[in-house]
């Protein structure tokens, strides 16, 4: 029971991070119908920017920590957003209207370029960060096993949930969100109503990148170890979360992220940690066999 609770806490934390990345994929897919395979690298860049900002701000302990966290969060979100914006301008906008495969190849190309760019500029070795936030609550004790809910896990879940709430409000309640949904459903028609489609797409990339940056910062703080390759597996996992939840659906991305996080945590806890990725992808296969459009996805309607 204690062990179960601990893995549940770990799983939810992991799932929150996957969910943040997954939203970026699903939004871009929704609006331009392509998988932005460089999104994992945007997440990795967010992690690096947070790490560098932390190191520059210095190990300012004590009362300064909340402020430092906020500053790093803002720096990481805004700089990563610039990367997201530039990615769309350079690699995807010129290919708008060409076959989808072209944009897909371009995305993979950008993914490799960004990885190599970070590898060259930051070196290939893993980077470590001293724990910034330590400690936590001891929830339960059974023999020599203690269930710990660390402060870091609380921060991750609280930040993620509040960002998702803000984000959900933007999508459902504001003019921008309405424009995004309009572009998703019919871009030509949206333009005829005076919506600047290009700008709406740019904003989508900016929002997705900012959320990925938050995920990057959380991973840096949580694990304390990153390298230039960290975006690859995280990206694939988040993409899996999207497909599981139903790609194109934002609640689906959140749910999918949570499920992938839980599956991984429980599998590593009860079976073998080596096969946790296999477990996550196997569940994906099973879901797709029975619900090809994902858990919350709408079945594809044939347009006549």
């Amino acid at each position: 029971m204690e062990y179960f609770l601990q893995q549940l806490i770990n799983g939810v934390t992991l799932g929150a991070i996957y969910g943040l990345i997954a939203i970026g994929y699903t939004m871009v897919y929704g609006i331009i119908g392509m998988i932005n395979f460089a999104h994992g690298e945007i997440f990795m860049i967010g992690a690096f920017i947070s790490l560098i900002s932390f190191l520059i701000l210095g190990p300012s302990g004590g009362a300064m920590v909340p402020i430092a966290l906020l500053v790093v969060l803002l720096i990481a979100m805004s700089l990563t957003a610039v990367y997201g914006w530039a990615l769309e301008r350079i690699a995807y906008r010129p290919l708008r209207g060409s076959p989808r495969l072209a944009a897909l190849i371009s995305a993979i190309g950008m993914s490799i370029i960004l990885q190599n760019y970070v590898q060259l500029s930051q070196g290939a070795r893993v980077k470590t960060l001293q724990p910034v936030i330590e400690g936590g609550f001891q929830l339960m004790k059974a023999g020599n096993f203690t269930v710990v809910l660390s402060y870091m896990q609380i921060i991750i879940v609280v930040v993620t949930v509040s960002l998702m709430a803000v984000f959900w409000t933007v999508i459902t309640k504001t003019a921008l969100g309405r424009a995004q949904r309009a572009c998703e459903q019919d871009r030509t028609m949206a333009a005829l109503l005076g919506i600047d489609v290009d700008r709406t797409i740019s904003i989508t990339f900016i929002l997705g990148a900012a959320l990925a940056a938050v995920a990057g910062m959380m991973v840096t703080l949580y694990y304390g170890v990153i390298d230039f390759y960290v975006g690859f597996l995280a990206g694939i996992k988040a993409f899996t979360a999207d497909v599981l939840g139903g790609i194109g659906s934002i609640p689906g991305a959140m749910l999918g992220g949570l499920l992938i996080g839980l599956i991984e945590a429980f599998w590593s806890g009860y079976f073998s940690i080596e096969y946790k990725d296999v477990a996550a992808f196997s569940i994906l296969v099973l879901v797709l066999v029975f619900r090809p459009s994902g858990l919350l996805g709408r079945p594809e309607v044939e347009k006549v």
Binding site: A175, L176, R178, A179, R181, A182, A190, L193, G194, I195
Partner: peptide, 8 residues
Amino acid sequence: VAQHTKLM
């Protein structure tokens, strides 16, 4: 959504 410009 047709009144997007004004709202935006």
